[in-house]
């Protein structure tokens, strides 16, 4: 602190930050409260700010039975689909991009830079702008309503490759020279040197991609037609889209809580990796 602390200057940051935290938490808190009341209380607008007595009932029904009219599918199933999708995207991206970055950094071959640029350009175009043609290709390949169709097109992106390339460039050349003297081939070098050194980068990328995969919306909306393939983020939208009076808000809000919990837990539990991943993938 440069100046003498006055009472105001000591208290002001706390006031502002606590207000910020309240604004950030409020919508989720309201959703949590709604997930503990019954439909009638919510529909009458009698729900206050205190949790009600129906929490276990609502969560049980949402997870294992589902809504009566709109989605017909237990949310537990949707969460499993979301989990599979998020894991496949995260792991797939990591594997594909660590290999291609290794090839680009540790080899000299014709069209090396061309390959790099072909990958690099994909950074610019999110799936939203080429949505229908991509859908058509996936449907021509008979990949609608499959986990492959849900994930593989989203794996095609440059972030991971750029991140690993950037990291490999910081690995000292001496390490490769030493392994070469020890007669280690590329496989050996990758397994014993590059992979152990990359662990933090891999973990950081995993956190970011897991969130990205879990939160996908437009793509699964188009690719899944069967109820059994729905992800939770799609499921909740279908719960609300019906006539307003029919929306089972207590179940929709339970689903919202269940949908935001896994990625939020990942962020809070792995905060350091998350911040690292976020800052480095954006560079």
């Amino acid at each position: 602190m440069v100046e003498k602390r006055t009472f105001l200057s000591a208290i002001l940051p706390h006031v502002v930050l606590i207000l910020g935290v309240i604004v950030v938490f409020f919508p989720v808190y309201v959703a949590f409260v709604a997930s503990t009341w019954d439909a009638a209380t919510i529909a009458n607008g009698q729900m206050g700010l205190r949790p009600g007595p129906h929490m276990l009932e609502n969560y049980h029904r949402t997870l294992f039975v589902g809504t009566a009219s709109s989605t017909r599918e237990p949310v537990g199933n949707m969460m499993l689909n979301s989990l599979i999708m998020a894991l496949m995207i995260a792991v797939g991206k990591i594997i594909i991009s660590i290999f291609s970055a290794f090839a680009i950094v540790y080899y000299r071959f014709p069209f090396r830079m061309a390959a790099f640029w072909i990958i690099f350009v994909t950074l610019m175009l999110p799936v939203e702008v080429r949505i229908y043609p991509t859908y058509k290709i996936v449907s021509d390949l008979n990949m609608l309503d499959t986990y492959w169709g849900l994930t593989v097109p989203l794996i095609a992106s440059a972030t991971g490759t750029l991140l690993f390339r950037q990291f490999f460039m910081t690995i000292p050349d001496e390490l490769l020279e030493a392994s070469k003297i020890d007669a280690a081939g590329p496989f050996r070098f990758f397994k014993d040197t590059v992979l152990p050194l990359s662990m933090t980068t891999i973990a950081a990328l995993f956190v970011i991609q897991f969130i990205y995969g879990w939160n996908q919306y437009l793509w699964p909306l188009l690719i899944t037609t069967k109820d059994s393939m729905q992800t939770i983020v799609i499921g909740i939208k279908k719960m609300i889209v019906t006539q307003d009076a029919l929306t089972e808000w207590q179940l929709a809000m339970t689903t919202a809580v269940l949908a935001l919990l896994p990625p939020v837990i990942v962020v809070v539990a792995m905060q350091k990796l998350f911040v690292k991943g976020l800052v480095e993938t954006e560079k």
Binding site: L17, V24, N215, Q216, L260, V264, V267
Partner: peptide, 11 residues
């Protein structure tokens, strides 16, 4: 303050 990043836009 940072956790809302993890909430899906639709949610």
């Amino acid at each position: 303050l940072i956790w809302p990043y993890a909430v899906a836009p639709a949610i």
